[in-house]
Design a protein around this nucleic acid. Structure first.
Length: 468
RNA sequence: GUGGGUGUAGCUCAGCAGGUAGAGCGCCGCGUUGUGGUCGCGGAUGUCGCGGGUUCAAGUCCCGUCACUCACCCCA
């Protein structure tokens, strides 16, 4: 016997939880569609050369390669003579953005721009698994891709989508934190940190501010690796700890940053963009309590170029960002000469779901089955009537399971209870004789008898009742 | 890739101056005839991660190995 075990770093759920997960997926999908986005899917694996265009060492370290047996043998033969092992022909996607870039570049002429697509699929990263981090996980992406141009107005749509979806998900109050990479670049240039490498290193450290605190950041930046002057570090700290407390405050903070500038064009541009984005976010109806400026946010350094977003749950800051994204100048530069600027966000649903479960925020939504009614077998001789009742319920649009193997009624009720099925429609000799059905609500511990002809409508009424 | 921690029943874990394994939860059955979840009573379940060593004797000590896990790196 082989011990049955999932590989580590995957999120495999039991049905009760899967239902809760599915509902979250549905809420996100419907949110994306409500904002006028179109669905696409791309293959779980891509050609290695397509996926690894950036050939960053980190990327290759984290990617899973896929190799057919035939190709594997072929590459082995070639290996004996060639200059080292060739890359496997395929690799599993590690995000949905690179496949999107390939997709848009490949189908550019069949798509209409701005191209608004959403995509909710699994991605794979060969990281060492950690608490709440997976090697296989869902990303729910939504992006707007422009041809040649995409006004910054689109950047304002993302917070509006996030707001709509997280309101629907009802997992508590949240804050959409907004920043702008141009503003950051300008700010650090003004401080004399102009070297791209050094700037990136500083941004990486600053990004950990919320996790490690200002003191840690201060000692890191003044330390050997960076060697920044105390005065400069204090300016950085003052800057990155900014969190606006409302719309007007956000605009005031921007004005303040602009006043403090030594004339960086990038900073001015970033400020102007943020101003426009914030103004439109408000116009789109996002309450000002739900968004703020946060100058510490940098996000992934590789391609975000303008607006960046990060969303956190107010009551559970330890969960970290539950949705993030930003603006990129040119999505598919590796695949096409066309300039395709874009903006988008991504919800890492597996991680979010796992965190919510850990925080005990899922209890209410789990334990409920998609089966709405169970028709037990009270008497084996009444099988035909029992099945007819099940059909009647199904035609009435009620998700119904009929017990086919019978047994004691008590056991069947226990089965329903454990399976999270709320209603049982009992049809025994008595009911058949009377032309009735007994409906039992396991949650409210209540039961009553209705005429068989009215069972669907009666059950519909009951399903609409609260559980407790 | 670097550094810690842990591996005992399905789950969470206890057992430890070395003497051939336990609790809670869960699971199964019973509390009669068509009523679950509560309650009472009864029951099943373990190559004590794997391999080697020390010992009369190892879950308990030593070595190795594997797995898992936490943190760092990174997170498009």
């Amino acid at each position: 016997m082989i011990t049955p075990r999932t590989p580590s770093g995957v999120l495999e759920l039991l049905p009760a939880e899967q239902i809760a997960f599915q509902r979250m997926l549905d809420a996100i999908r419907s949110g994306y569609e409500r904002f006028g986005f179109l669905p696409i899917e791309t293959p779980v694996f891509e050609r290695s050369d397509v996926l690894l265009t950036k050939t960053g060492g980190e990327t290759e370290r984290q990617v899973y390669f896929v190799q057919s047996t035939g190709a594997l043998e072929k590459s082995r033969e070639a290996d004996t003579s060639a200059e080292g092992p060739a890359l496997p022909e395929m690799a599993l996607r590690f995000d949905l953005t690179v496949p999107l870039a390939r997709y848009v570049a490949e189908h550019e002429h069949q798509l209409t721009f701005p191209f608004r697509r959403y995509q909710m699929q699994r991605v794979y990263r060969g990281e060492r698994p950690q608490r709440g981090r997976f090697r296989e996980f869902y990303q729910c992406d939504v992006d707007i891709i422009g041809k040649d141009e995409l006004s910054v107005r689109h950047d304002a749509e993302c917070p509006a989508i996030i707001h709509a979806i997280f309101t629907d998900l009802a997992i508590g109050s949240f804050t959409i934190q907004v920043n702008n990479r141009k503003l950051l670049r300008g700010f650090y240039e003004d401080l004399g940190i102009t070297d791209a490498e050094q700037q990136a290193a500083v941004l990486r450290e600053v990004d950990k501010l919320d996790k490690r605190g200002p003191d840690h950041l201060r000692s890191t930046l003044t330390g050997a690796g960076f060697g920044l002057a105390d005065e400069v570090v204090e300016q950085i700290l003052a800057f990155v700890q900014v969190r606006s407390t409302g719309h007007d405050d956000a605009l005031a903070r921007l004005a303040e940053v602009e006043r403090g500038s030594r004339g960086s064009a990038s900073l001015a541009e970033g400020v102007a963009e943020l101003r426009e984005v914030l103004t439109l976010v408000r116009a789109l109806g996002v309450p000002e309590s739900d968004y703020c400026l946060n100058f510490s946010i940098a996000r992934g350094l590789d391609y975000y170029t303008g607006t960046v977003y990060e969303t956190t749950l107010d009551e559970h800051p330890q969960i970290g960002s539950i949705c993030s994204g930003g603006r990129y100048d040119n999505l598919a530069g590796q695949y096409t000469r066309s300039r395709l600027p874009g903006v988008g966000i991504s919800i890492g649903l597996s991680r979010l779901f796992w965190q919510l479960r850990e925080a005990g925020l899922l209890e209410a939504s789990t334990g409920e089955s998609t089966v709405q009614a169970l028709v037990p077998q009270v008497d084996a001789e009444l099988l035909d009537d029992q099945l007819a009742l099940a059909s009647q319920l199904r035609h009435g649009g009620i998700n119904t399971e009929a017990v086919l193997d019978g047994g004691k009624l008590g056991k069947q009720l226990r089965y329903a209870d454990r399976a999270g099925i709320r209603f049982v429609a009992i049809l025994g000799r008595q009911e058949v004789a009377d032309g009735t059905v007994t409906l039992k609500d396991l949650r409210r511990q209540d039961q009553f008898t209705v005429p068989r002809t009215e069972v669907v409508s009666a059950l519909r009424v009951e399903l609409a009742q609260p559980q407790v």
